[in-house]
C-alpha cells in the first residue's frame, strides 16, 4: 500500500494534491484554532456558504458578461472558467465576513438568525447566477465536493501566499486575537480595538474557507476547519501548540484521505472528512480512557 502510494506520487497531480493539503492544513490549523476557541463555527459556516454566491458570480461574469463585452474575442471563448470563480469567492466571502461580523456586533439579538438568513441568501444567489449562466458548468461540483486532485500549480502559489498572509497577520495580532477569544469584555475594557480584530479574524476565516473549498468542497469546509483544532485543543494546553498540532493533524487526515480516495476511487473530499471524523471520535475515546472513572461526576463544570 505504501508502494502504490509512492507510485501515485510520480504523477504531478498527486504531488500537487499533497502540497495543497499541506498548505491548506497550515491555514486551517491556525485559523481553525481561533474558530474553535472563540466558538464561531456557525458564523464561519455562514461565510463559507455565502462564498458560493461569489462562485456563481464568477461563472456568470465569465460566461455571460465577458462574451457580451468582448464579442468575438477568442480568449473569452475558451472553455475554462479561469480564476473568475475563485476571485468571486474571495470577494464574496470577504464581504460576507465583514457584513456578518458587523451585524453580529451591532444587533443585540437574533444575530444568529440574521447570519443564517445571509448564509442561505448567499448560497441562493450563487445557484441562480449559475442557472443564468450559459454554457460550461462542469467545474461547479468541484466547489461543492472539492477537487484536490485538480489543483493547478498557480493555485498552489496562491495558497502559499494566503498562508504567508495569515501567518503574518496572526503573528502581528496574536495577543489581541487571543484576548478577544478568551475574554472579549476584558479586552474591550483594556481598549483593545475588539471590533477591528474580530473582523480581521473573520476575514482570515473567509480566505481559509476559499482555500478549503478547493480541497474538500464547500459542504465539508466546516469539518476541516474545526475537527483538527478540536482534537488538538483536547491535548494541548496552549494555543500556539494547539495550532501546530492541528496543522499536523490536518496534514495527516488529508494524506490518508487522499490515499483512500486514490486506492478505492472515491471522492477525495469525502474520504478526507471521514478520516478526520474518525480521528475526532478516536480522540474522544482516548480522552475518555484517560479520565479516571467518576472524575466527570466530581467535576461537572469541566465539560
Amino acid at each position: 500500500m505504501i508502494d502504490s502510494f509512492a507510485a501515485a506520487l510520480q504523477f504531478a497531480f498527486m504531488r500537487n494534491a499533497l502540497l495543497a493539503g499541506l498548505l491548506v492544513s497550515i491555514a486551517c490549523g491556525i485559523v481553525g484554532t481561533f474558530v474553535v476557541i472563540k466558538r464561531i463555527v456557525f458564523i464561519s459556516g455562514g461565510i463559507a456558504h455565502a462564498a458560493y454566491g461569489g462562485i456563481g458570480l464568477g461563472y456568470f461574469v465569465r460566461y455571460s458578461v465577458l462574451p457580451l463585452l468582448f464579442a468575438g474575442n477568442t480568449a473569452a471563448d475558451s472553455q475554462r472558467p479561469g480564476s473568475w470563480p475563485l476571485v468571486g469567492a474571495v470577494a464574496f466571502s470577504l464581504v460576507a465576513a465583514v457584513v456578518m461580523g458587523l451585524i453580529q456586533r451591532r444587533t443585540t439579538q437574533r444575530a444568529d438568525t440574521i447570519i443564517g438568513v445571509l448564509w442561505a441568501i448567499g448560497m441562493s444567489i450563487g445557484i441562480v447566477l449559475v442557472d443564468l449562466t450559459q454554457g460550461y458548468k462542469a467545474d461547479l461540483m468541484s466547489y461543492l465536493f472539492g477537487s484536490i486532485l485538480a489543483v493547478q500549480r498557480g493555485e498552489l502559489w496562491a495558497m502559499l501566499a494566503l498562508d504567508a498572509l495569515i501567518i503574518g497577520l496572526v503573528a502581528l495580532f496574536y495577543k489581541e486575537l487571543l484576548a478577544i477569544a478568551f475574554d472579549e469584555a476584558f479586552a474591550t475594557v483594556r481598549n483593545v480595538p475588539v471590533d477591528a480584530i474580530y473582523v480581521l479574524l473573520l476575514c482570515m476565516i473567509a480566505l481559509t474557507v476559499v482555500m478549503l473549498m478547493r480541497v474538500v468542497g464547500l459542504i465539508m469546509v466546516i469539518a476541516m476547519l474545526t475537527i483538527p483544532p478540536a482534537i488538538a485543543g483536547q491535548f494541548f494546553r496552549d494555543v500556539k501548540r494547539a495550532m501546530l498540532g492541528a496543522t499536523l493533524l490536518g496534514t495527516l487526515f488529508i494524506v490518508v484521505g487522499l490515499w483512500l480516495s486514490y486506492r478505492w476511487n472515491l471522492t477525495s473530499g469525502a474520504t478526507i472528512i471521514l478520516v478526520a471524523g474518525s480521528g475526532y471520535l478516536l480522540s474522544l475515546g482516548v480522552k475518555a480512557l484517560n479520565l479516571r472513572p467518576g472524575k466527570e461526576e466530581l467535576d461537572p463544570a469541566s465539560t
Binding site: 476557541i37 466558538r39 502581528l172 495580532f173 495577543k175 489581541e176 487571543l178 484576548a179 477569544a181 478568551f182 475574554d183 476584558f186 479586552a187 483594556r190 481598549n191 483593545v192 480595538p193 485543543g233 483536547q234 494541548f236 494546553r237 496552549d238 494555543v239 501548540r241 494547539a242 463544570a301 469541566s302
Partner: peptide, 26 residues
C-alpha cells in the same frame, strides 16, 4: 462562571492580558 474550561491557555498568558491596551497593538 463565564469561563470555558477547555480553552487552551496558561495562567501566565491569562494574567498578561492585563497589559493589553490600544497602544500595545503591534
Amino acid at each position: 462562571v463565564d469561563f470555558d474550561r477547555v480553552f487552551p491557555i496558561r495562567v501566565w498568558d491569562v494574567a498578561r492580558m492585563g497589559r493589553l491596551s490600544r497602544h500595545h497593538v503591534l
